[in-house]
């Protein structure tokens, strides 16, 4: 029987449902439907420290609030950076923000990528579409401490060449000898000479030592499931594969119930999980 006497706590001082105003410092267009906002707190000198993989709830005044991963550099906590794809009402309203406009921020929430666990290992990042945004902080972190890791490989799949995010950065990074980047698109165009096809096709030939690799995967759920299967075929251990899950979220603090995926609350137990934590649930429909 459970304890019927309430265990009241008074530790929590601020209401975690109240957004804090942040001012947009810079807006960058990444593609026809995706943009990046750089922002700073309006009322404080708060440094926004976060773990790569964590997310914030972003609030557009009077419109709505949505979960968006932090896409900036964890070593530059003075600037909060988010990259968002326009898909509906709130993301559309967010895309209209200009330098000087204000939006609300709650966070950071959730678990991060296994960046420290990856020390001494090869690292393969597999991103699909906007899934590159939550992985970018990992790249920043690893490039800042490049000697701690073995090979670092990014496999990135997009719908078309027009959808490729962070193009300039990718080109700059591709020029480095210590980072391997492979991009594939579902549909090429006449100027595209790169890979065509789904991102999982890049896995068999990618240069990493499967037995000593940590993989971090972010993209649509089916893509992540097949990526995990492909990676295991290459010999990567299930425990060495991390995924970032997505569900509807209304609170980000484990209270609204929306983000449940089997027994987990994605907002507080995730969004980043190891593959074995989710495997049996990922194989079922409509969880």
């Amino acid at each position: 029987m459970i304890n019927l006497t309430p265990q009241l706590t008074t530790q929590q001082l601020t209401d975690p449902m109240q957004p804090e105003p942040f001012r947009v410092k810079r807006v960058m267009k990444e593609s026809y439907d995706t943009f990046t906002l750089e922002m700073e707190p309006v009322n404080s000198e708060r440094l926004f420290t976060f773990a790569p993989g964590q997310f914030n709830m972003l609030y557009i005044f009077g419109v709505g609030e949505i979960p968006i991963s932090i896409s900036g550099d964890p070593n530059q906590p003075a600037m909060l950076v988010h990259t968002t794809r326009i898909v509906g009402a709130v993301t559309k309203a967010m895309s209209k923000l200009k330098t000087g406009d204000v939006l609300g921020v709650r966070g950071p929430f959730g678990t991060g990528w296994p960046v420290s666990a990856a020390k001494g290992c090869d690292v393969v990042l597999v991103a699909g579409g906007i899934g590159l945004a939550p992985l970018r902080p990992v790249l920043y972190q690893m490039l800042a401490h490049r000697d701690r890791y073995g090979k670092v490989v990014l496999l990135y799949g997009c719908r078309s060449p027009e959808d490729i995010l962070f193009r300039k950065e990718l080109e700059k990074w591709r020029a480095r000898f210590d980072l391997e980047i492979f991009v594939t698109v579902d549909y090429g165009d006449s100027d595209w000479h790169g890979n065509v096809g789904v991102v999982t096709k890049l896995i068999p030939k990618a240069p990493f030592d499967a037995l000593n690799t940590v993989a971090m995967v972010c993209g649509p759920e089916v893509m992540m499931r097949f990526t995990a299967i492909e990676l295991q075929k290459r010999g990567v251990q299930g425990e060495a594969i991390a995924l970032s899950m997505e569900r509807n979220m209304k609170c980000a603090i484990g209270l609204c119930g929306h983000c449940q995926f089997g027994p987990t609350f994605i907002c507080k137990d995730g969004p980043v999980f190891t593959y074995p934590q989710l495997q049996s649930w990922l194989a079922q429909w409509e969880i």
Partner: peptide, 26 residues
């Protein structure tokens, strides 16, 4: 009573406390 105890677990005994529930329950 058990149902209230279960909601206590959800709203005030976890990582985050719900201020509305807490204020009523206290």
């Amino acid at each position: 009573l058990h149902a209230i105890a279960i909601q206590d677990r959800v709203f005030i005994e976890g990582e985050y406390v719900d201020p509305t529930y807490h204020a009523h329950r206290e």
